[in-house]
Structure formats: C-alpha cells, structure tokens
Design a protein around this nucleic acid. Structure first.
Lengths: 219, 219
DNA sequence: AAATAATATAATATAATTGTGATAAATAAA
DNA sequence: TTTATTTATCACAATTATATTATATTATTT
C-alpha cells in the first residue's frame, strides 16, 4: 500500500512516515500540492494524507485536482477544527479529517480503517490460478498449492504484470533485488519449478525467446 | 444495525437513508422529535442521526428525552456550525456532529466509526481456542490456559488478523511496539511457546516460510 | 539438414530459514 | 533483597530453498 503524505513541514511528514512504515506502508512525500499531483500522476498511490494549509497550492485545490486524475481516498490534516465545516461544504469526498496536533498512532488507525473499507477483496486471478495475497496462498483450480517464497514472488510479479514480457534482468532486480549478482539462468530454474506447480496451467507462463518470460491472460 | 434518521425535510432523510441502505443498515425515519421518541420506544434502535432544528420538538430536547429511555449514540446535524458550542454546552453525550451541507459518504463513515467503538469486542473463537478479551482469558477446549502477556498479545493479534500472513516486522511493531529494536527471531520463540500452550491446536499457527506466521480459520 | 543459439531440465552443492532447547537478562512478585 | 516469572538472545540441528553446473531439448538460422 502506497501512501502519499503532503505537508509543507518536513518534520510532520517525517513523523507520519515513520509510523506508516512500521505497518508496512510505502510512503511518498510531497511538500506542496503541485508536487503531490506529480507524484500521483507517476505512481500508484492508494491513499493521500494532506495538510490543508500549504504554499503554492492549498489542500482543497490539490485534492480537487487529484480527484480528477484518480479517485483516491483522502485524509485531510488541519490546524483548526473550524475548517472542517468548510471542507465538508466542498464535498470533495474526503474520507476522514484529523486536526493538529494529532496522535500518529490514531492517524495510522484511520488510514487502516479507510483502506479496509475501500479494499475490495482483490485477489489476482488468471485462468485457473488464483493468488490470495493477504493469506499468501496460491490456488490452482481452487486447490491450495504450496510454493516456495521465490516461486510465490515470481508468480505474483508475473501475474501483476500480465501480458508484459519481462526480461531476466527485470525479474532478477524486482524479485531477487537490485543487489543480486548471480546468473541469469537462475530465473529459468525457478520458471521450471513454478510451471511444475501450475500443473495443467503450466503454459500460461510463456517463454519469450531472446528476452524473458510473460504470463498471458487472453481475456 | 438499525438507524433512526430524524429530520423534518423528507429529502434529506431520503438521501441519508439511501446511503445507509447501501451499507446494509436498516433505516427508520421520523420527521420530528415526538415521532422519534415513539420509534425509539417501540424499536431496537442502535444509533440516531438527528437534525437540531425541527418543529414540535427540537433536537436538543428530543435527544435528552431519548437518552432517558435508552443510551443510544447520537449524531447531530445542523445548518450552522456555531451551534456546535451550544450543543457541547448541553453535554448530552453526542457522539458526533455534522454540519449541513454534508457529504453522505462522510456521514456513513462516521456512523460506522461510532458503531465500531460502541460495539463490545465479542470473544474470538477459532477451532477449540477462545479468547475472552474482557476477562483476559484464553480457553483451549473450554479449559482455561495460562499465557504470559506476550503470548496473549500474540495470540490475540494473530486471531484478530486470521487468514492474513503477518511478517515478523509487522508482529514486532504491532505487539512489541514500534520502538523495539531487537531480533526478528524473538517472534519465533514466542510462537514456539504459544504453540506449546495450544496443545493439539498448535497447528492452527501456520508458518509462512520466508514471510512470517498466520492463523488459519477454515470456515 | 546441419549448425548455432537459447531454453528446459535434472542433479547437486550451497545457502537460508525455521524449530527448539539452553541460558542470560529483564521484569515483577514476594 | 530474594525469588519467581517472563522475555530475549544465542547456538545448533533439522528442514527447506536456492543457485549453479552440466546436459538435454527445443527453436532458429544458415
């Protein structure tokens, strides 16, 4: 889950970020509305925490602009509680509102609550293969299949990037990590074992000769 | 969950009702304080959304009367935010306050928030394991089992997040606290002792290799 | 069709992860 | 304080996963 924190005070951003990271959120930061819009355009942001009072572009305007791009849940921060009414008047689809000074723990709780009510049980499904990422489980024709960690990561990454041919380098750096300096062919071996796990669906993993691999989803 | 919406404007009642129904609430309507009291007397109402300005009997009075009958959470609606202070002065045990014009989405979110914090944690049960959180007791096959504080917290957290694979970092930050800078493997040790306490149910705690642990509830 | 290139597979050695028991440190209780 | 309990860390064994290498197979090019 990617959270964008927008506040002109670096200190406040820092505190919020620290707490969010503890709960496995990935945190992006912006110091004003304009930068926030840029980040939303170029990243997959799932929720925005935004201060109302900011230089260059205030929270109201920034929220309105971002909502045009993508309907992301918002939590607005503000120093004064009176601003609440003003905010409601805007009817921007604000999901929550927190006044400063706030407790970071409370803020994180609200983030979780909002994400929970906005997250439709999204499990990745292609052909007879389903990944329940929360449970960290893979089903083939509704039968639970045990994968090793690497197999799991590989399948998930391929499914998230279905219909895209992924080079071995891409796979290595995104799944093994940028600091992996091993053999390219390591990927091949894992593709092999993964295919074996997928049984009759082994062929959804296509070999892209001279390039790498991809998972194909016809629909 | 039964919600009573009290407002003299049928249009507003209608909008609120529409949104509440989307979230599976059952909605009762009243157009003034007197009718509201009647409905509360004759139905099991869990929460009241009430406008302050109403004919026959205003919101303040109606709220006071209803609180005499039953201690139900209230959300008050009002056209002017200045009335907020007046409302606070009354100290009627208002749970939330929303000024018109309001966002129905926001209102529903607040309803949910209030219901959540008013609902007593029911006891968690998975397989033969029961946590009575109020009593702070754990039963295995209805036999009281003594756990250390950490074991209790760990079991409770795992059960609250059943069917979700939880990383060691997640467990550490949520159970030990964000300021714990110890060894990952500490979790393992506690999982070990916890499993021992659970006797024949030790296997409901699944190891998610390369990841962490989870509790599985098949049903 | 042969030569070449790329990938698939199998076998295996290496590495990483987890389970567990022992122990020391910290905390709470007597 | 002493004692008991709880907690964290360590060490090692058991398990499981991974990377590498060698070889076989398949696809592409000439």
């Amino acid at each position: 889950m990617n959270i964008l924190v927008v506040d002109d005070e670096a200190l406040i951003r820092g505190v919020i970020k620290e707490y969010l990271i503890l709960d496995d959120f990935k945190v992006y930061e912006a110091e004003d509305g304009l930068k926030a819009i840029e980040i939303v355009k170029n990243n997959s942001i799932d929720l925005v925490i935004m201060d109302i009072m900011m230089p260059k572009m205030d929270g109201y305007t920034a929220c309105k602009e971002i909502k045009k791009i993508k309907d992301i849940p918002f939590i607005m921060l503000s120093a004064r509680s009176e601003e609440y009414d003003k905010l409601i008047g805007f009817d921007l689809g604000i999901d929550d509102y927190v006044t400063k000074p706030f407790s970071p723990k409370e803020l994180v709780a609200r983030v979780k609550a909002i994400i929970k009510r906005n997250t439709k049980e999204e499990s990745l499904i292609i052909a007879g293969i389903k990944i329940d990422d929360l449970a960290h489980e893979v089903y083939v024709d509704n039968k639970l299949v045990m994968l090793t960690p690497k197999e799991y990561d590989l399948l998930k990454y391929l499914m998230e990037n279905k219909n895209i041919a992924l080079s071995r380098e891409n796979l290595l750096s995104n799944i093994w990590g940028y600091d992996f300096y091993g053999d390219d062919r390591t990927v091949d071996t894992h593709i092999k074992t993964l295919r074996a796990r997928l049984g009759k669906y082994r062929d959804i993993i296509k070999t892209v000769r001279g390039m790498g691999y991809k998972i194909e989803d016809k629909r």
